[in-house]
């Protein structure tokens, strides 16, 4: 049933969303495509909004040690598997585990690493 719903949503999307598609990425979405590109994987999209509903900023940006610069943390699947970075929660205990590759690796091919969603600031601080 779930699959059926999904396929219907997909069909609807291809037919409907395309014509009215305007690229409005959600504010704060982070595209991480530092290594994925070279590994033949789709870029990762990290939705800030989803995570801030569940965790305070400090949990990831202090306790887990994510940098506040897109692409600056040096995340690899290997480190994630050791419980670092995303793997601190995405371990099948706090959040779903890493076998769901395409929940994260769901970006359009060729996206540049950076923060999406308009109103962005610029300059050297912006990777």
């Amino acid at each position: 049933m779930k699959r059926f719903l999904k396929s219907k949503r997909l069909a609807l999307l291809v037919l409907v969303a395309l014509p009215i598609m305007v690229a409005w990425a959600e504010y704060g979405d982070v595209v991480i495509n530092v290594r994925a590109k070279g590994e033949g994987m789709a870029p990762v999209i990290f939705p800030h909004w989803f995570h801030r509903v569940r965790f305070q900023c400090s949990v990831c940006h202090v306790d887990i040690g994510f940098k506040t610069r897109a692409g600056g943390s040096g995340i690899t699947m290997d480190k994630i598997s050791q419980g670092q970075f995303c793997g601190a929660c995405h371990n099948g205990e706090i959040a779903w585990s890493v076998e769901n590759c395409d929940f994260c690796h769901s970006g359009m091919p060729g996206l540049e690493t950076g923060i999406e969603g308009g109103h962005k600031t610029a300059g050297p601080g912006y990777y």
């Binding site: 997909l10 291809v14 979405d29």
Partner: peptide, 13 residues
Amino acid sequence: PESDGIHDPTADG
């Protein structure tokens, strides 16, 4: 996500 211009609308995830 599927129509935000950055997610791949054809990806299952």
